[in-house]
Design a protein around this nucleic acid. Structure first.
Length: 318
DNA sequence: ATGATTTGTCGTCAGTACCA
DNA sequence: TGGTACTGACGACAAATCAT
């Protein structure tokens, strides 16, 4: 059981209160195929409106659940508590301690494992979904191939057609968008591509941090700022101010600037990673809550079935 | 209305896992 | 082994809620 393994890896309880006290009332179930011999598939309507198909807890054919009804009842009643009780045990041997202290798998892995167990549970995509991952003002525009964030908080999207879009995070919708057009967008020569855009506010310099093989720099050419997207090794055209590459740094000030730039890049990446991690965590928690709701419903159904079979099989003494 | 408390979100740091 | 991704932990901050 995946949740059994991963619950052991929790270092501490998750801060938020994930109690699903009112989940049961909000979950509607359309059962189908609960009979023996075929795996029970339950159609569950989640509180969020999502409908998922869930396979039964007991997937192997059970010829009889009456043979030891007490044991079965106990198992059903405590199936969700075994992990907690095991975790709360005072005596932990070294192996178990290592297990507990070891890092738990990422939410993506956990949820993908879960999705392979339970059909209907969506996988966490490798790439973030468009509606959540990209800035809202950019999502409605052309499909970008790269999205960057400037040091001033603006988002830069480089679309496949060579168009560059700049959006201000504080603005709503497309109002903050600024479209840039490549001056040589048709057939770019090897080397630099100079772009220009009409900034709504000409406030100081901007610095774009671009991972990988592209570098975006701001050129100080008159009132309209110019940006250059180029490979780091390409030759510089005249009139374009190129940010110094790490290999060409000499003075302590340049080294300090480079260190600052690297730090900001690292912070920016970590910021985005933290956002993505929290998004996955929310998705993971939602998935767990859904599973809890499903299991509660199935638990109730099994108990009802058990009672029915008890009534059928118990001999009438009167 | 106002101060205290709770809750949610975000950025950052630190540590681990994983991969080339 | 270095770089990167991931995530727990922590603090700051704002909004919501509660008590008076």
């Amino acid at each position: 059981m995946w949740w059994h393994q991963h619950n052991l890896c929790f270092r501490r309880p998750i801060e938020e209160d994930y109690s699903s006290g009112d989940v049961e009332e909000k979950v509607s179930v359309a059962g189908s195929g609960t009979g023996r011999g075929s795996p029970a598939v339950t159609l569950v309507q989640l509180p969020s409106g999502q409908t998922i198909h869930v396979q039964g807890v007991i997937q192997t054919p059970q010829p009889s659940v009456i043979q030891s009804p007490q044991i079965h009842t106990v198992q059903v009643a405590t199936i969700a508590e075994t992990d907690e009780s095991a975790e709360s045990e005072g005596v932990i041997d070294s192996h178990k301690r290592r297990e507990i202290l070891s890092r738990r798998p990422s939410y993506r892995k956990i949820l993908n494992e879960l999705s392979s167990d339970v059909p209907g549970v969506p996988k966490i995509e490798e790439e973030r979904s468009e509606e959540e991952g990209t800035p809202p003002s950019i999502a409605t525009m052309a499909v970008p191939t790269s999205i960057y964030q400037t040091s001033t908080g603006q988002y830069i999207a480089i679309a496949q057609g060579g168009t560059i879009q700049i959006s201000n995070p504080g603005s709503d919708g497309v109002q903050g968008l600024q479209a840039l057009t490549m001056t040589n967008s048709g057939a770019p020569p090897p080397g630099a591509t100079i772009v220009q855009y009409a900034a709504q506010s000409a406030d100081g310099t901007q610095q774009f941090f671009v991972p990988g093989s592209q570098v975006v720099v701001q050129a100080a050419t008159g009132d309209m700022p110019a940006y250059q997207i180029r490979a780091p090794t390409a030759a510089l055209p005249q009139g374009v101010v190129m940010a110094a590459s790490p290999g060409s740094l000499h003075s302590p000030q340049q080294l300090a600037e480079e260190a600052t730039r690297k730090r900001e890049l690292r912070l920016m990446k970590n910021r985005e990673a933290a956002k993505e991690c929290r998004r996955r965590k929310k998705e993971y928690v939602k998935c767990l809550e859904s599973r809890v709701a499903v299991l509660e419903v199935q638990n109730k159904k099994l108990i009802e079935e058990l009672e029915t079979l008890k009534d059928i099989c118990s001999p009438k003494t009167d």
